[in-house]
Structures are given as structure tokens and as C-alpha cells.
Design a binder for these strands. Structure first.
Length: 454
DNA sequence: CGATTTTGACCAGCGC
DNA sequence: GCGCTGGTCAAAATCG
């Protein structure tokens, strides 16, 4: 009896495996189709905006927004289609530009409007931004953002270094002791351009000093190096998501809390946010936190994903300084947040080229293996795909507490107890970090999305 | 010597 | 109005 039961179960799993495989293949096809369409669109619509930020985004989109996804993504297609239509309706002047860029987000009213409306910058603006018409003009391109709202994107990453490497040049302009944290908070501004408005705060987590919390604010008004492009896209897109959310809501983040899928579908340009994003609805500034603290080996969700090889991007996107140290290639945006390690080995670059094809060929096998080795993951993947295919209405935002025990994600299962950070409502900053010890699966839905798209 | 960091002072917002 | 806090300035110090 028992043997037959096991056999039946095995058969069921095999069938499920086969079914999922088919779904993945379908997603792969969809991805390819979408990518081709995107290429066509970008080719047929030459630059219409001179804003360097937008230009930068456009050029980087195919790689950073799609490739880093690492896998087929029907929702991305849905996103682009939806955005293409919405763009045509709401921003006829913008053409397809916004479709390829981060759209309203990139124009980031958060900063542009801040430049004009936010009084906190008052006097400094006169001295710093007054000479930077590009900032004013370029970022005023977008009117989608509500005035006075200032989005921030917080990134949590484990790092021994005083500051994570994100590809940009920063100059420290201040340091303060923040209340409730023995570690000082450092203030940096981007120095890659004279009047670049981007600033960031760096502070170690009070609970776990190995975690470095970097908060970005603003949008670069200059071209970015490749290493920084993805980061900029990610943060700006995340910020735009917060700021361009339902206009009727006082807080876009709050609105999104109930629709995590909206985050994913509406802003697929946030390649990783769906994996570990936490939205703060009540903070002075709408803040989205990208939690990258759960590196491989820590038992965290992200590590679980990486461990399963599901976030394999094209090797070209691998951060050379980190990739060699990772069990699997890490998307550059992730890699750049990881603790800086020794310089890349000589074998890193060539190995990447060689591995590229091998990876593409073995992704399916890897996924299959992952599914086979983690039953929970199977369920998670199925649920994720189902949720994606069902549209944006089916998921729950991670910030909404999920009943304990409903551990349906393989990630959560693997990270059960340690990384299933309960971030109920996340009142202030980020509660999704590895230090969040309470159970639940607040990231259930968004992780599922990630699972299905990476 | 220019760029960057340090650090005390200043300012604005907010709560009481 | 006052005090607290976060954020920034800017002179001095330090670095390369």
C-alpha cells in the first residue's frame, strides 16, 4: 500500500513536472516573441527625448529589464502591451519612449517635482540646482507624479565594506547619528555629473551590523556606466512605482500593498523588486526596500532562488567581481550589492562567454532539477505561473500578512523560519530583512511572481 | 594641489 | 514656543 502510494505520488510529481516544463517552454517562447517585438519597437522609434536618463534607460532596457529577468516572462509582455497602449493614450507626446524607459517613473517627478516643489531642498537648490537646468527641464518631462511626494528606494545588502559598489561615483557630504541606531548614517551625493540630484544614505542595520542599508533618492541626470545602469533603472522604476501609483491614493505604496501583482505587472522594469521588495506606506517618503540580504548560504529566499539557478541571467550581465564567487551567476544588480570581493579572476570573463550557451541550454535542466528536489518549489512555481497568467488581480502583496503555515513557496519553504520575514505593513523601513524572525510568508505573492519570471 | 572626508553648525519639519 | 531629529552646508583636515 505504502509503496503504491509513493509510486502514485511519484507519478503525480512527474506529471506535474512535465506540465511545468511545458509551461516554462511556453514562457520561453513568449519571452522570445516579446524581445523581438521590443527590438522592433525600439528600432522604429528613434530617440525622441534628449534627457540622458531616459536615453540611458532606453539603451539598456533590453538587457537590464528583460535579460536580467533571466527567464521567459509573459507578464512582461502584458506589461509592455499595456503600457504601450496606455502610453499612447495618456502621453501621446512621449511616444514610445516611456514604454522603453521607466516612463513616468524615470521622469521621476519625485525628483523633478522635488526640485520645484519640495521645500526641503530650498536653499540648497539655489546653489546646487540653480545651475542645473538639465535637471529641472529633463525631469519635468513627467507629470505623472504627484507633487510633494518623494520616493526612495532602499537596498539592504550584506556587506563588510562601508559602502556597496553600485557603479556610480559618490561624494560624502555628511554624517549623522540617527536615533535608534548606534551606527552613523552617511550621506552621499552623486558626483558623476555636476548637478546630479541623486543622493543616497548609507547606514548599517542596528539589529545586524553586517547588513548595509543604502537608500537612494532621485534620478541621475547623466549617462551611467553599464555597471550602474541596472541599479539606476531598478531604483528609479521602484520609485516611480511608488510615485505613479493610483493617483487617487494618498500613498501609492499603500495602494500597491494590496496589489503586489500590480507592482510586477505594471513595472516589470524592476527586475528584482518583486523578489524582495517591501513597501513602506507610512514613512515620510514612500519607500520601497529591496532586500538582498539573503545571499546563498544564508538560507534566505533569494539564496534559495539563486541556489536553484532560477535567476540565471545571460552571463554578460554577471558582475565580474562577484560572479566567480557565486555558486551561480548573479544578476549584476544583485551582484553589485553583494559584498565586494577580490578582483575578478582571469578566468572570469572568458568563462562567462563559454558558460553563456551552456547556461541557456541547461536552464531547463536546472529548473527541472530544482523542481524535482524541492516539492514546495513546485507548488510555488505553479502558483506563480497561475497567478501571472491570471493577471494582476490574483496575488497578494507581500506586505500583507499571510496566514502562517501557508508556506506555499519553495523559497519560503527553504528559508522557512529564517527568511520568511514578516513585514506586516512595514510601518517604517524594511522589515523583510533576514533579521525579521517572525514567520508567515509576507513575500509569498511577489516571490511567486519572481519565480515565474526568472 | 585638487578631490574627498570629517565634523560642528545651521536650518526646517514635526510633535508636544 | 521649544526641543528633538533629519538633512545639509562648509570650513578644516586628510588623502592620493
Amino acid at each position: 500500500m505504502e509503496a503504491s502510494a509513493v509510486e502514485a505520488e511519484l507519478r503525480r510529481v512527474v506529471d506535474e513536472n512535465r506540465r511545468l516544463r511545458g509551461m516554462l517552454e511556453e514562457l520561453t517562447r513568449s519571452y522570445g516573441t516579446l524581445y523581438q517585438q521590443l527590438l522592433q519597437v525600439t528600432q522604429h522609434h528613434p530617440h525622441q527625448h534628449q534627457h540622458p536618463d531616459l536615453m540611458n534607460n532606453r539603451s539598456s532596457l533590453p538587457h537590464t529589464h528583460l535579460n536580467t529577468m533571466g527567464a521567459p516572462n509573459t507578464s512582461t509582455r502584458q506589461l509592455l502591451e499595456a503600457r504601450a497602449s496606455s502610453t499612447a493614450q495618456t502621453q501621446p507626446d512621449a511616444g514610445v519612449e516611456d514604454e522603453a524607459s521607466d516612463g513616468a517613473g524615470e521622469a521621476s517627478p519625485s525628483l523633478s517635482n522635488n526640485a520645484g516643489n519640495n521645500d526641503s531642498d530650498g536653499k540648497r537648490k539655489l546653489s546646487q540646482d540653480g545651475t542645473a537646468p538639465s535637471r529641472e527641464n529633463g525631469e519635468q518631462a513627467s507629470s505623472a507624479e504627484l507633487p510633494g511626494r518623494k520616493a526612495r528606494v532602499s537596498v539592504r545588502a550584506r556587506s563588510e565594506a562601508p559602502m556597496i559598489s553600485d557603479g556610480c561615483q559618490w561624494r560624502k557630504y555628511g554624517q549623522k547619528m540617527a536615533k535608534g541606531n548606534p551606527c552613523p548614517r552617511a550621506y552621499y551625493r552623486c558626483t558623476m555629473a555636476v548637478a546630479c540630484p541623486v543622493r543616497k544614505q548609507v547606514q548599517r542595520c542596528a539589529e545586524d551590523k553586517t547588513i548595509l542599508v543604502t537608500t537612494y533618492e532621485g534620478h541621475h541626470n547623466h549617462p551611467l556606466p553599464p555597471a550602474a545602469t541596472t541599479m539606476a533603472n531598478t531604483t528609479s522604476a521602484a520609485a516611480s512605482m511608488l510615485l505613479s501609483g493610483p493617483a487617487t491614493s494618498r500613498d501609492g505604496a499603500a495602494a500597491l500593498l494590496g496589489h503586489p501583482a500590480a507592482l510586477f505587472h505594471h513595472h516589470a522594469s524592476i527586475p528584482y523588486a518583486s523578489t524582495m521588495a517591501t513597501l513602506s506606506a507610512s514613512a515620510p517618503f514612500p519607500t520601497i526596500t529591496l532586500d538582498l540580504t539573503q545571499a546563498p548560504g544564508s538560507g534566505g529566499g533569494v539564496g534559495g532562488l539563486l541556489g536553484h539557478g532560477l535567476q540565471r541571467p545571460p552571463v554578460g550581465m554577471i558582475h565580474p567581481a562577484v560572479a566567480p564567487a557565486m555558486p551561480f551567476p548573479v544578476p549584476s544588480p544583485l551582484a553589485m550589492f553583494l559584498p565586494q570581493r577580490a578582483p575578478p579572476t582571469a578566468a572570469a570573463a572568458p568563462a562567462g562567454l563559454v558558460a553563456r550557451q551552456q547556461q541557456q541550454q541547461s536552464v531547463m535542466e536546472t529548473v527541472t532539477a530544482a523542481i524535482a528536489t524541492d516539492p514546495n518549489f513546485t507548488t510555488a512555481l505553479a502558483a506563480a505561473i497561475s497567478s501571472v497568467m491570471a493577471g494582476a488581480g490574483g496575488a497578494h502583496h507581500q506586505a500583507q500578512p499571510t496566514p502562517r503555515g501557508s508556506n506555499t513557496t519553495g523559497i519560503a519553504g527553504e528559508a522557512d523560519g529564517s527568511a520568511a520575514g514578516a513585514a506586516p505593513a512595514a510601518p517604517t523601513t524594511t522589515a523583510a530583512g533576514a533579521h525579521a524572525a517572525s514567520g508567515g510568508s509576507p513575500r509569498l505573492a511577489t516571490q511567486s511572481c519572481t519565480t515565474s519570471t526568472t
